[in-house]
Amino acid sequence: MKTPSKVGHLDPAAVCRSSDPMAVRELLTKIGDKWTIFLVLSLDLLGGRARFSELERAVPGISQRMLSSTLKNLERDGLVVRELFLEVPPRVEYEITDLGRSLLAPTQGLVDWAKANWEQVRKAQSKYDAR
């Protein structure tokens, strides 16, 4: 069996010894959901601030309901702020916060890894499925 690399090695025992291991797990689950990463990166690509419709166009495949739900969760967690403009028709914009920006570098690293390794993963899946 291969020994895990010490560089970037996740130590589950250390996570469990942290002040609140359930909070760490909960936050990692939220950040790793299907849409959060795409929305945070899209907000950054759109200059840090965007309207709902711009985000909907920037994230192909997301439904309006899921976009709304994910944005509410990001707002609740302090990763974005929502600003309502009392105009006719009303306008709403979402802006990434400093906390949300702090997520960009590790998120981009994960996206880069996925781009570099998706074909290798696909081949492994095909090999597994053929068994």
Rank of each mutant, 00 (worst) to 15 (best):
A130G: 12
E26D: 15
M66K: 06
L45P: 05
G32K: 01
A130L: 08
A105H: 09
G78F: 04
N117I: 02
R122P: 04
I37D: 03
V40E: 03
K127I: 15
A23L: 13
G47Q: 07
W113F: 15
N117L: 02
F52V: 04
E54R: 09
L39C: 04
V88R: 08
K30H: 10
P106R: 01
V121R: 00
L45Q: 15
T29I: 12
Y94C: 10
K127H: 10
L46A: 06
C16L: 11
L110V: 14
E56A: 15
N117F: 02
D11T: 06
D20F: 04
S18G: 14
Q120E: 13
T36R: 00
P60W: 05
K123N: 10
P89I: 07
E95Y: 00
E119G: 01
R122I: 02
P106K: 00
I37F: 02
R65T: 14
T70K: 08
D33C: 05
P60R: 06
A105C: 05
S42P: 07
L43K: 00
M1R: 06
K2W: 05
L79S: 05
A114E: 07
K115M: 11
P90Y: 00
T97S: 11
R57Y: 09
V40C: 08
A105E: 15
L46R: 01
S102C: 09
N117Y: 09
S42E: 03
L41D: 13
R76Y: 12
S19G: 12
K123E: 14
L10G: 01
D44S: 10
G48N: 10
L55C: 04
W118D: 13
L99T: 15
S63L: 06
D112I: 04
L27C: 07
D44M: 01
I31Y: 09
M1K: 05
P89S: 01
A116D: 11
D98Q: 03
N73I: 12
L46K: 01
R49F: 11
Y128I: 10
P4N: 05
M1C: 09
P4R: 02
A13K: 02
E56T: 11
V111L: 15
